[in-house]
C-alpha cells in the first residue's frame, strides 16, 4: 500500500494555527497539573483530619462549634446542661472555674443611685407599662450572671 501521501506534498502549517495549538496544549497541561495538585492536597488534608479525629482531646474540642454574633461568643452543644462546666473550664488557663462567676452580691438601688447619681443617664428611657424597678441591683465583678 502506498502511504506517501502522509508525508509528501504537504503544505506548511500556518504559524497562527501552530501557535494556537501550542497554547491550547499548554493550557490543558497546566489544568491537568492543577487538578492533580488539588486532589493530592485534599487527600493529605483528609488524612491529617482523620488522624486528628482519632485523638480524644481533638474529638472533645470538635463537639463544640464556636459562633460569634454581634460581638458575643456562643458555644453550641447538644448537651448544654452537662457540658457547661467542661466548656467553661476549657476557657480558663488553669482549668478551674472562675470564682468570680458566682460572685453576684446585690446592692440597694437607692444606695447605688446615691453613690452614682449619673447612673440614670445610662438606663433605658422606656419600660413596658405596669413594670417598676426591683429594689435591688446585682453587681458582678465578672459580668457573668448565670
Amino acid at each position: 500500500m502506498n502511504d506517501e501521501f502522509l508525508t509528501q506534498r504537504l503544505s506548511d502549517v500556518r504559524p497562527a494555527f501552530a501557535q494556537a495549538l501550542q497554547g491550547k496544549l499548554h493550557r490543558l497541561e497546566r489544568r491537568q497539573r492543577r487538578r492533580t495538585r488539588a486532589i493530592a492536597s485534599a487527600l493529605v488534608a483528609g488524612l491529617l483530619f482523620s488522624l486528628m479525629l482519632t485523638l480524644p482531646p481533638v474529638r472533645a474540642q470538635m463537639r463544640w462549634l464556636l459562633r460569634e454574633i454581634g460581638g458575643v461568643k456562643f458555644v453550641e452543644t447538644e448537651n448544654p446542661q452537662e457540658d457547661w462546666e467542661t466548656i467553661i473550664t476549657s476557657y480558663t488557663e488553669d482549668g478551674a472555674l472562675p470564682e468570680q462567676d458566682y460572685f453576684t452580691p446585690s446592692v440597694y438601688l437607692s444606695v447605688l443611685l446615691a453613690q452614682y447619681p449619673e447612673l440614670p443617664r445610662f438606663l433605658p428611657t422606656w419600660i413596658p407599662e405596669g413594670f417598676a424597678y426591683s429594689r435591688s441591683v446585682a453587681v458582678s465583678s465578672y459580668g457573668h450572671f448565670f
Partner: peptide, 29 residues
C-alpha cells in the same frame, strides 16, 4: 438589663437556637 465590660466566656446553648437580630442598626444575638 445587665451591662458591663465584655467577658471572655462564651454563652452555652443548643445549636440552631441563636439568631442574629438588629437593635436599630446594631447586630445582636
Amino acid at each position: 438589663l445587665r451591662f458591663g465590660r465584655p467577658f471572655e466566656l462564651p454563652y452555652i446553648t443548643r445549636p440552631d437556637r441563636v439568631q442574629e437580630v438588629f437593635i436599630g442598626d446594631i447586630p445582636a444575638a
